[in-house]
Design a protein around this nucleic acid. Structure first.
Lengths: 238, 238
DNA sequence: CAGTGGTCTAGACCACTTC
DNA sequence: AAGTGGTCTAGACCACTGT
């Protein structure tokens, strides 16, 4: 059986998006919701806290839960999102060209970061993302063969994340991301349509599984004019 | 009396930073902690969930809570952070020059966003941040006079946020942030030491109070070589 | 198997907002 | 005073991990 608080969360998200409670009005109270969904108040509170963390409501003590629905203005709420999800959301014509698919050098710095045992090899995937006819993003991914034993051109051209989560059944736990602006490298100039831009936006991330093991490093290099990052931050105190 | 789960959270953070449980080892189990702190398991779980959201631990079902302490590698965990906090953390010599302090035009676009009643005026503050002798950041802030009735040069030169949270007692609820790269404006060129850089990183944010009302818009314009954004993201499912 | 974290309950008291 | 969300409890059962 589906977890109750997640079912309630999904139901409330749907109702918010269907405008059952317009923006800046109040949700029913926790007590009323616990009657409506025939459950305890704590379970309702779990669902409401999820809504709050994901930018649907703001809870106000003594008043109730105000609908804010940040999703109406900006699509991607911050987090770990794959390129495929993004391109699909924006409904852009896009394609992916794989430029490298192999193993990394054994004494490369990243190998030392990712390898947990001696002799463990690290996948090295370099891909160029083309959107609306322009080569705009250069993605460099590194995975341990411990978690991702096999990779094919076909998988890389579609979505590695889809493969990892659905076929391999690995669950992402958390990620650390860094965004900086750098000078383009020779590789950037060669593989991307830089159009005279003298800077490139670099997003470096380290992705950990739910068992807290590091399994991937990524470098995503974007042409500055096509880069946009959206973040929803909440003062978390509970 | 201090909230119990926050006291436990603080205590655990201190102990993690004091290396009581080294990185990648396990915390005591929830049952054991509930005995140690003489409290219920749910209260312990609240403290542990906070640790998890803030990047100190990763909970693994059937095993326990693994210490990860992301803070060792990168200082600012994503969120809403003021310039003053940041400069202090990095221990850099820095100063702030106020270039404008007044009210915004009544039919400006931002006035329409922020004003809740007719005739309500909007503060317009433009400041240049100088770090280690270079003018690097241009901050443009807009506040409603409804929440911030008075502003002085002195306040602006120090930290407006400090004033808002401590003197005015306003509590930040959440913020929406957007990061893009743009061409420098005339104003950027005039006020900043751009050193020939042809791009500028713009962070636009809207800040809401805990009562879900919008009270501030901000534009923070950074020279690209001095810009760095760090983000810790977790797949939130509870 | 025992031990772990994840979910859920029914109830209690508190702090706050609104009237 | 009545209603709201915030904290806290003591107990239950489940799913998962290790041995």
């Amino acid at each position: 059986m589906q977890k109750k608080y997640l079912a309630i969360y999904d139901d409330l998200v749907n109702k918010i998006q269907a405008n059952t409670w317009p923006v800046s009005t109040l949700l029913p109270s926790e007590n009323e919701l616990s009657i409506q969904y025939d459950t305890s108040r704590e379970t309702i509170r779990k669902a409401l806290n999820l809504l709050s963390h994901n930018g649907y409501i703001q809870k106000v003590r003594g008043k109730g839960s105000v609908v804010i629905d940040i999703h109406k203005f900006s699509f991607p709420v911050s987090g770990i999102e794959s390129y495929a999800e993004l391109a699909e959301k924006l409904q852009l014509e896009s394609s992916t060209a794989v430029h490298q698919l192999g193993y990394l050098d054994a004494n490369h710095e990243i190998t030392k970061m990712l390898a947990m045992t001696q002799g463990e090899r690290i996948w090295n995937v370099v891909r160029v993302r083309e959107i609306s006819g322009e080569k705009i993003i250069l993605d460099k991914d590194y995975f341990t063969e411990r978690y991702v034993p096999l990779l094919s051109l076909d998988i890389c051209e579609k979505s590695i994340y889809h493969h990892i989560e659905n076929n391999l059944g690995l669950e992402i736990g958390f990620a650390q991301k860094e965004i900086v602006v750098e000078d383009p490298t020779e590789e950037d100039r060669k593989l991307l349509d830089l159009e005279g831009f003298s800077n490139i936006v670099v997003i470096r991330s380290q992705v950990y599984l739910q068992d807290a093991n590091l399994f991937q490093c990524t470098e995503s290099r974007h042409r500055p004019d096509k880069f946009r990052f959206v973040d929803f931050a909440r003062r978390v105190k509970n």
